[in-house]
Design a protein around this nucleic acid. Structure first.
Lengths: 161, 161
DNA sequence: TAAGATTGAGTACTCAATCTTG
DNA sequence: CAAGATTGAGTACTCAATCTTA
């Protein structure tokens, strides 16, 4: 006798849910560090990190390198500007865009936060162990490869404009 | 000569960032499915999944099994109630809490969405390959174990009240 | 006082205009 | 009309009261 077609589903075994919960836990713990120190939002931290590691770039480039929507970038940049952590300079060739660059205060904050970030990552690595980190990186590589080929296939195109 | 203590930091190699980006990609793709079909939010989907797999439970239990804050649970439950997908019944012994249960319409939607979820997971699995899924699950197990022991250590306690 | 659950205030998000320049 | 960037409207989130019952 066949049982009727009952669909077995357990949210706590569902991979998308598990990945999300793990990611949330990891980034909440890290966010506490920069929120409590600087009262920064996550988009601001990401924009700062992009500017700190890349130097003088445009808002669009921040979006590309931080995976954020352009409205998030726009507001994060405004936030950093209000703190005097970055300056804008007009591009003479194309005045639609501005080059963004960290001030010396911004750079100092970046260096400090980069250290915090690296030590947080080090704690995570020691938590997972060498083998665990290796597993995680392999999995991330596979997902990132899938994401790249799917966005190339116009699947998520509209989400990123 | 030692170079001065430059902190090298690349956001795109930063594990917390990579995990988050991967998780967002996976859940955005899935969310499109239930958003376009039912115009549901993620908290609503999670509450539906918890109710569908566990049966008659309280709001607190939904929170435990779906990893959501109680205010999210409260609003998600209200949303499902407005759709007539669940009913509340008073507990005579302790009238602070109500038992929540899916209606027949709610159960039908749950079964349909569970199928969608499983087929999405299957696509993800085939994308990653057997080895990739294995790597991912090992990594998730390690992170979940770390999260459990750390929340037990009252680190994140305040976030969950 | 505490526990289960809801509500309100403020903030951040998403999506669709909008503005400016090319 | 397209591209870089910003703004506004509506929605969802977080956090701190609040309400009710134990």
């Amino acid at each position: 006798m066949l049982a009727d077609k009952e669909t077995k589903f357990d949210l706590e075994e569902f991979l998308p849910y598990r990945i999300n919960r793990a990611a949330e836990w990891i980034s909440l713990n890290f966010a506490k560090e920069y929120k409590s120190r600087y009262d920064m939002t996550r988009p601001e931290w990401r924009a700062l990190a992009a500017l700190g590691s890349l130097g003088r770039i445009t808002a669009t480039e921040i979006g590309v390198h931080s995976g954020m929507h352009k409205t998030k970038v726009s507001r994060a940049v405004k936030g950093l500007e209000d703190r005097r952590w970055l300056t804008r300079t007009q591009n003479g060739d194309d005045r639609r865009m501005e080059y963004l660059e960290l001030t010396s205060t911004g750079k100092a904050s970046y260096r400090e936060l980069a250290k915090v970030a690296l030590s947080y990552e080090a704690r995570l690595v020691s938590l997972l162990g060498a083998q665990g980190v290796d597993n995680l990186k392999r999995a991330l590589n596979a997902i990132e490869a899938a994401a790249r080929s799917s966005t190339a296939n116009r699947d998520l195109k509209r989400r990123f404009d």
